[in-house]
Design a protein around this nucleic acid. Structure first.
Lengths: 162, 162
DNA sequence: CAGGAATAATTCAACCTTAAATCGTCTTTA
DNA sequence: TAAAGACGATTTAAGGTTGAATTATTCCTG
């Protein structure tokens, strides 16, 4: 949405960038979700499977932290993946508070064949920008993300933002 | 999340930019939602009130289109705003299929005093980037958003992306 | 070692989001 | 003008998201 705000220049420029950033993320999300829908996966479900594939089994706390989501949310997403037989919960032996989430063979098969076309779709959309522009965009977004988190938050927050 | 994908350079760069774009939008969203929470407004509710303030009364279809959301979703958000007495539904006189959504005095008062600090918060976060960087970021995001929407969608889609 | 603090997971209530089905209201057209 | 189609809004079912309260387990401390 165009800004419709008549404030000073600094504010106009920031609001304009803000809106375009969100629109880009939103449109990208829609496009990619359409691709994932063919595997009947939601974006969060895909994200969890992808993380398990590339990092190995993790407890829900760690999964939530990696995805910047709440623990309650991770319980729900893992519930839905487990119900479809794509992951398995394993109670911690040493510390029974933890449940480690594992890919099942079916889950591994699904994410293994879903990830490559997903990555290709991202690459294809981003190819409207040159390599240098993509790197520049990443750099600007990283600084912005750090500023958004850091500003009035606790300094002890985990980085995870390289 | 760092990429953990060992594909060709083009893919690595695109995935990296993709992740940082989403992290930035996510972090920004969290930061701003915290501000809106003091007015007990969700981000979608704030968005609708803001649109009504700056564009005047609109029917739900138009509100949904402006925010790139479904009609069903707009029914829900307007329901919640109406229940709090911040907006009012008015049945179309000429064409009774439409309901036009109006700000109530209370709604106008709330959004009028909520918008300025919100805009200031956005401007403050974006001030980690120079004016030129903000303009460049907006430009890159706009091109990316258009590419994400356009690629395999219908060419007839409304622009709304300047 | 016993009680209290901390911690991982779950449950709950509230809201957001979508696609699909339905309802009421026009508009078109045969 | 009556049937058919289009169109705005609503409902429904399914999933995502959060913060707050709860549960089970472990750790710490006196």
């Amino acid at each position: 949405m165009p800004t419709h705000h008549k404030g000073p220049e600094e504010e106009r420029i920031a609001l304009d960038a803000f809106i375009k950033l969100f629109r880009a993320a939103d449109s990208l999300n829609r496009r990619l979700s359409a691709g994932l829908a063919r595997a009947a996966l939601s974006a969060p479900q895909f994200g969890v499977l992808e993380t398990l594939l590339h990092l190995g089994p993790l407890c829900q706390k760690d999964l939530a932290r990696k995805h910047l989501r709440s623990g309650a949310n991770m319980t729900m997403v893992v519930d839905n993946l487990e119900r479809r037989g794509l992951v398995e919960r394993v109670r911690g032996e040493k510390d029974r508070r933890f449940t480690t989430v594992h890919l099942t063979p079916a889950g591994r098969r699904l994410i293994t064949r879903t990830f490559p076309p997903h990555a290709r779709a991202i690459t294809e959309v981003f190819s409207v920008l040159t390599k240098e522009e993509q790197i520049h965009l990443a750099h600007l977004c990283r600084r912005l993300g750090v500023a958004a988190l850091g500003g009035s938050g606790e300094p002890g927050a985990e980085d995870n933002t390289r």
